[in-house]
Amino acid sequence: MSSASQANEHVAHHFESAEQQRQSAQLGMWAFLVTEVMFFSGLFAAYIIYRSLYPEAWTVGSHMLSIGLGGFNTIILLCSSLTMALAVHAAQTDKRGASARWIILTIVLGLAFLGVKMVEYSAKIEHHLVPGAHFHLDPAQELANLQAAGVQVGDHLRHAMETVNTAHVQLFFSLYFAITGLHALHMIIGIGVMIWLLKTTIEGRYSSAYINPVEVSGLYWHFVDIVWIFLFPLLYLVGRH
C-alpha cells in the first residue's frame, strides 16, 4: 500500500486517500458493468425463449456457423485477456515499457478478433443467411452437402434439418447478428479505450502509485471477454452431437 503523501499528486481533493480513490474508481466501473450485464441479458433472454420454442432452428442455425473461426476467435480473446492482465501487472510494478507493449498486443489481438468476425459476417452475407428479403436456406440441400462432405450426420441433426421452419432459423440469425454485433461494438469501443490507454501510458501518467485508469479499462476488456465466453458455446456449439 502506498501512503497518502507518496501518491498525493494523483489524489483528487474529494478523496481521503489514494486507496479510497482507487476503490471508488473500481466501484464505478463495476456499477457500469452491472448495467452492461443487464443490457446483454435482454438479448440472452430472447435467445433462451426462442431456443426453448424452436430448438430445431437453433440446431440448424448453429450448423451454419464455423466452429473453426468461432473457436479461433475465442482463443484470440482469451489471449487478449491475458495480455491485458499482464499490462495491468506491468503497470502495478512500475514497468511502463512492458505495460505499453502488452497494451499494443491487446490492441492487435482485438483487431484480429474483429478481422475474423468480418470474414464470418461476409460469408454469412454471401450465403444469404442475413435475415430479411434475401434470406435463403434450403435445409434438404444443406443436409445433402453435409453428407457429401463426409460429415457423420446424427439422427438429431437429420431430424432438425428435415422438420425445421426456415423462418425460425431467421430468428436464430437475427439474434446471432444482434448479439455478436453488439459484442463487436464493445470490442471497437474497447480498442478505442486501449489506444487512449497506450497514449497516456507512454506519456508516463501511471506509476505503481496511480494505475486506476489501467485497472478499470482492464475490467471493461475482461467483461467483453466474458460475454464471448458465453456466446461461443451458445451460438456455435448447439446440437453438434
Binding site: 491485458m84 475482461h222 466474458i226
Partner: peptide
Amino acid sequence: NTVIAVGIACIKALLVALFFM
C-alpha cells in the same frame, strides 16, 4: 449438453472475474 456447456462457460467466467479482474 446445454447444461454442461453453460456450466463450463460459468467456470471460465468465474476464473476471468476472480483473477483477471
